[in-house]
Amino acid sequence: MAPSEMRVAAVTPDRAWARAIERASGEPISLCYACGICSGSCPLASMMDLLPSRLMKAVQLGLRDRVGRAVSPWLCVACETCAVRCPNGIDVARVMDAVRHDAAAKRVSARPDVDAFHRWFLWTVRMFGRAHEGLLSAGYGLQQRRLRRDLPTGLVLLRRRRLALLPHLIRRRREIGRVFRQTVGRARTRGGAGG
């Protein structure tokens, strides 16, 4: 953080929220002593607004709003490099998960487009029991108005016969529907979490 950005702001630490994130993630967040190995190992760090180790510190401090608007959890791909290197055995990617779930529950997303991609993926799983890359790309491309940009890639894959045209349906799709209904619920598969 540049010195010019350092200023005293009135921040109320939300300790109950910090505890809730620690519980939801299942990770001992309070053990983090900010060594920075996670940030140094993260392949997406250069694209993040809040480095993983700083996000950990912000969670410890209960800075709910700062963490809530961070892009970092929406760019984390859970490569788990942070997790296998953390000297305190903290799986930082799972903390990213918990922070993201918390934001999404309030229908907030710093990257609604990334969120939408995952929800379209899950929508195809919910419909057929298995993912369908063609419908995922079509639905996502139409909704995000980027079909023209994505189409050349789709055509390359089609030409190489690497896209299944028809979805593969499992027999007992009802079981999958039940799992979705009682976890993510009814309205929250397709589209974004808002934002």
Partner: peptide, 25 residues
């Protein structure tokens, strides 16, 4: 027989229980 999607990265991106129960089936 009748296997389903494991949820890949998308399930844990969106919901912690879905991320476990989908592959668990």
């Amino acid at each position: 027989d009748d296997w389903n999607c494991c949820g890949a990265t998308s399930a844990h991106f969106v919901d912690p229980e879905l991320a476990i129960v989908l592959p668990a089936r």
